[in-house]
Structures are given as structure tokens and as C-alpha cells.
């Protein structure tokens, strides 16, 4: 079973719970969600507890993360967008830390389950729709009507815009989910090759060096992907929020 690249995505029930016939057990996925939240919160609370004018290392890191996300949000949604900062900051850190947890062998990757990324993407999607209508009323529909388009092809353009708008949560969630899933499967497959090959004697052990090198390279790549996907998810969130605030602005 150790070579099965899919087994790492299995949910294991740790504390069985059931309400009205629905299984809501505390699983390894839930455990790592809790771990993500606890680790991140504890780190940030510890790092910012000094409140120094001259920051300590931890505080400097916390401030850099804050400035990084704030800069991202301000660049795409303007200073008005800063009221969504808690949401964007939480999303970024939650996804980043969950992805990074997934990089540990035998740890569960929360974001490798499509339901999680879909839920987060819909959170953003509905936030955009609700804020868009609350702030702009029906002016929010200007989002689907790009300016400067000839009236003849307007229906076609509007149709495309509407479809792309509703496709957003799908692309938003699948991008993160598929990257994490595929990366972990690839890693596991190559790591499995090492074990399989080395069971074929001396020649096999010598041959196992190739997948070993590959695994090392892929691990580095996966760390990059883990960060990059958190960044991309957050970046897209910022851009979608910008649409809610400035629907005619593109």
C-alpha cells in the first residue's frame, strides 16, 4: 500500500461523529485544518506580542506578510479594497500554511480535496456578488458590458462575459486543487519508483538514483507550487473583489 499514490488523499476518521445520518466525523483533514489555524494563529500572536517599534525577527516576518498581502490587495482593488483585507489575508495564510503542511511526508494536504477549494472559491464568489450588488445596485451588471464594444457584437460579448464570470469559481478552485493533487501524486509516484527499483538488486539500487534525483527536484518544485498557488488564489481573489468595487473599471 505504501506505493499507492492515491492513498495519501484518503480521509481517515479520527473521531466518528454523525448527525441525522450525515457523517461529520473529525478526520485527518479536519485535524490538519485545525493544525493550520492553530499554528498560524499562535505564530502570529507570538510574533506580534512584542509590538516593538523596532521589530523582532518574528514580528518582521509578520509585518512582511501583512505588507505583502496588503500590497497585493491595494494594487488590484485600490485602497477601497482594504476593507476586504481580513478575508484576503486569512485566505492567503490558510491556503499557504495548509499547502506547506502537505509538504511533510505522511501529512495530509487539506487543499488537495476539491470540496475545500470549491468552498473557498465560492466564499469569494458570493462575497463578490453580494458586495457588488450592495455597493453598486444594478450598476454591478456593468461588469458584463465592456465599454467601447460595437453594438453589433454586444450580445456575444455579454454572453462571453457572463459565462466567464460564472466559470470563475470553477477555475479558481480547480487550479489550486489540481495543482496540489497532481504535484503530490507525481511526487509519490517517483518516490514509489525508488522503492520498487531498489527491490531489484544492485542494478535496481543504482537505477533508483534517477527517480531519487527527480524526487528531490520535484520536492523543491512542489514547495514553489505550494507558495505560488496560495499567491495565485489570493491574487485572483483581489481581482474579483476589484470587480465588485469597480464593475465598470475594465
Amino acid at each position: 500500500m505504501a506505493n499507492d499514490p492515491i492513498s495519501q488523499f484518503h480521509l481517515k476518521t479520527l473521531i466518528p461523529l454523525e448527525v441525522g445520518g450525515t457523517d461529520i466525523s473529525f478526520t485527518n483533514s479536519a485535524l490538519f485544518m485545525v493544525a493550520t489555524v492553530v499554528l498560524t494563529s499562535v505564530f502570529f500572536i507570538w510574533a506580534t506580542s512584542g509590538r516593538g517599534i523596532v521589530p523582532s525577527r518574528g514580528q518582521s516576518f509578520a509585518e512582511m506578510t501583512y505588507e505583502f498581502v496588503a500590497g497585493m490587495l491595494r494594487d488590484s482593488a485600490g485602497s477601497e479594497g482594504m476593507k476586504f483585507f481580513p478575508l484576503v489575508f486569512s485566505l492567503f495564510l490558510f491556503i499557504l500554511v495548509a499547502n506547506m503542511f502537505g509538504m511533510f511526508p505522511y501529512f495530509f494536504t487539506v487543499t488537495s480535496h476539491v470540496i475545500i477549494t470549491v468552498a473557498l472559491a465560492f466564499l469569494v464568489f458570493f462575497t463578490v456578488i453580494i458586495v457588488g450588488f450592495a455597493k453598486n445596485g444594478f450598476g454591478f451588471l456593468k461588469l458584463f458590458v465592456p465599454s467601447g464594444v460595437p453594438i453589433a457584437i454586444m450580445p456575444l460579448v455579454i454572453a462571453i462575459e457572463v459565462i466567464s464570470f460564472f466559470a470563475r469559481p470553477i477555475s479558481h478552485s480547480v487550479r489550486l486543487f489540481a495543482n496540489m493533487l497532481a504535484g503530490h501524486i507525481t511526487l509519490k509516484v517517483f518516490a514509489g519508483f525508488i522503492v520498487s527499483l531498489s527491490s531489484f538488486g544492485a542494478l535496481g539500487v543504482a537505477g533508483a538514483i534517477l527517480p531519487l534525483l527527480m524526487t528531490i527536484g520535484l520536492t523543491a518544485l512542489e514547495f514553489l507550487v505550494a507558495f505560488l498557488q496560495a499567491y495565485v488564489f489570493t491574487m485572483l481573489t483581489c481581482m474579483y473583489l476589484n470587480d465588485a468595487l469597480h464593475p465598470g473599471g475594465h
Partner: peptide, 26 residues
Amino acid sequence: PPFDPASFASQLLWLTITFGAFYFIM
């Protein structure tokens, strides 16, 4: 496993709880 609907309810619940708490703390 990632497409197993049987696990969706539990994951959604725990995501709501943990992410909600995370958002609150943040």
C-alpha cells in the same frame, strides 16, 4: 478520495469551523 461525496459534509463543516475561527482571530 477527493471526489468522494460521502466526505463532503464533514470537510465542509470542519472548514467552516476552522476557517471561521481563523478569520475571527485574524
